[in-house]
Computed example of a mutant assay.
Amino acid sequence: MGDYLRPRSLHEALAAMATGPWRLLAGGTDLYPAEKGRALTFPVLDLAGLDGLRGIAATDNGLRIGACTTWADIARTPLPPALAALQQAAVEVGGPQVQTAGTLGGNLCNASPAADGVPPLLACDAKVELACQRGTRQMALSDYLTGPRQTLRAPDEILTAILIPQTGLSGRSRFLKLGARRYLVISIAMVAVRLAADAGRITDAAVSVGACSATARRLPAVEAALAGHAPHLAATAVRDADVAAALAPMDDLRASAAYRATAAAELIRRALSDLASSGASEPAWGTA
């Protein structure tokens, strides 16, 4: 077995990262299955003991989610309606064991095209915070994810937090995904939609799709088409062609590109319809 270190502080963790390559471990729900029962032969830096990397807190600029915050933490924490999509994703990530151990930061570092946490965060204009001994930097989540299992995290950096700006906390959101079954399966397509409205018209729309392209993507053309519509008519503004053009969907063993494009468009329409039909029983659209 390779070296194993469980630091007691972020300072200690960053010092270790500066000494050479370490594989980061948080919940282990991606790392251990990938090894298929084999003993770990590489150096492991276990972040699970760093309480400072876990938790959700309001800031002057929005909301801060520690990278080691678990899916179960996200599901049970009172959050603004704009993050309902993230909470809905949290209860569909694997089973209860995975939700209890798995972390949001680990989901982003693993960088699967079908990572459940990414579409809801993209819909809220999330940023990531990265730290190393050289300092701390922030970048948009859309820039951080560069391809399947690829990110801009440097070898000596630790993802410490996910940051949601105040502008991303307006309105309400919905998350839907499609797979061969409801749970414990890699998605064929998933969507997150966030809407804010005023005087019965949509003023802000964010639409993101995962599991269809090399990375999850926002759909600016679809978002623009939704602006100004009454919420109950928004689904009629979603054109399959706009969705397909934005995604350039991929073919694989789970689904064809054509099926993915059609499925993503239908999921977006369903999410919009769900938001419109539930609006009367939830907080005002423009409030967080």
Score class of each variant (00 low, 15 high):
residue 117 G to Y: 02
residue 64 R to E: 12
residue 95 G to R: 11
residue 283 P to M: 03
residue 54 R to Y: 10
residue 201 R to L: 15
residue 104 L to R: 11
residue 264 A to F: 02
residue 1 M to T: 13
residue 170 S to V: 13
residue 166 Q to E: 15
residue 156 D to W: 02
residue 245 A to Y: 05
residue 265 A to D: 08
residue 98 V to Y: 01
residue 271 A to S: 08
residue 249 P to Q: 02
residue 252 D to P: 07
residue 69 T to P: 00
residue 213 S to E: 03
residue 89 A to E: 03
residue 154 A to C: 09
residue 129 E to L: 05
residue 250 M to S: 04
residue 208 S to K: 09
residue 33 P to T: 11
residue 185 V to Q: 06
residue 174 R to E: 14
residue 171 G to K: 02
residue 164 I to E: 04
residue 35 E to G: 05
residue 7 P to E: 10
residue 266 E to T: 15
residue 60 D to K: 11
residue 251 D to R: 07
residue 175 F to Y: 15
residue 147 G to T: 06
residue 208 S to M: 10
residue 82 A to Y: 08
residue 68 C to T: 13
residue 98 V to F: 05
residue 114 A to K: 09
residue 64 R to C: 12
residue 19 T to D: 14
residue 109 C to H: 00
residue 77 T to P: 00
residue 263 A to F: 06
residue 143 D to N: 09
residue 233 L to D: 15
residue 218 R to P: 04
residue 233 L to H: 15
residue 279 G to F: 01
residue 166 Q to P: 00
residue 274 D to K: 10
residue 179 G to A: 05
residue 110 N to Q: 15
residue 284 A to I: 01
residue 244 A to E: 10
residue 63 L to A: 03
residue 48 A to M: 01
residue 221 A to V: 12
residue 285 W to P: 01
residue 72 A to W: 10
residue 131 A to C: 13
residue 31 L to V: 14
residue 26 A to P: 01
residue 231 P to W: 06
residue 157 E to I: 02
residue 264 A to S: 14
residue 209 V to S: 01
residue 55 G to Y: 02
residue 203 T to D: 03
residue 172 R to S: 10
residue 282 E to L: 13
residue 194 R to H: 04
residue 271 A to Y: 13
residue 237 A to I: 05
residue 177 K to W: 03
residue 145 L to N: 06
residue 138 Q to M: 04
residue 205 A to N: 07
residue 190 M to A: 09
residue 171 G to R: 01
residue 183 Y to L: 13
residue 197 A to H: 05
residue 94 G to K: 12
residue 173 S to H: 11
residue 245 A to Q: 12
residue 275 L to T: 03
residue 98 V to C: 08
residue 86 L to P: 01
residue 138 Q to K: 01
residue 206 A to C: 13
residue 9 S to Y: 04
residue 148 P to T: 10
residue 177 K to D: 04
residue 235 A to Y: 03
residue 196 A to L: 02
residue 8 R to S: 14
residue 44 V to D: 08
residue 186 I to K: 08
residue 44 V to T: 15
residue 199 A to M: 03
residue 217 R to N: 05
residue 231 P to L: 06
residue 276 A to V: 02
residue 41 T to M: 00
residue 149 R to M: 05
residue 211 A to G: 14
residue 60 D to P: 04
residue 135 G to K: 12
residue 193 V to H: 08
residue 172 R to C: 05
residue 19 T to S: 15
residue 91 V to Q: 02
residue 136 T to N: 09
residue 153 R to V: 00
residue 8 R to N: 13
residue 158 I to E: 04
residue 115 A to W: 10
residue 112 S to G: 14
residue 186 I to L: 14
residue 142 S to T: 07
residue 126 A to E: 01
residue 107 N to G: 07
residue 8 R to Q: 14
residue 39 A to E: 12
residue 29 T to Q: 15
residue 76 R to C: 09
residue 116 D to E: 15
residue 233 L to G: 00
residue 229 H to T: 08
residue 3 D to Q: 13
residue 105 G to R: 09
residue 86 L to W: 13
residue 193 V to S: 03
residue 1 M to I: 09
residue 271 A to G: 04
residue 151 T to H: 10
residue 40 L to S: 02
residue 185 V to E: 06
residue 54 R to S: 12
residue 67 A to G: 04
residue 95 G to D: 15
residue 155 P to F: 00
residue 110 N to K: 08
residue 161 A to I: 05
residue 151 T to Q: 09
residue 21 P to Q: 13
residue 232 H to Y: 07
residue 79 L to V: 08
residue 265 A to W: 06
residue 232 H to E: 14
residue 55 G to L: 07
residue 40 L to R: 11
residue 5 L to N: 01
residue 131 A to D: 14
residue 145 L to A: 07
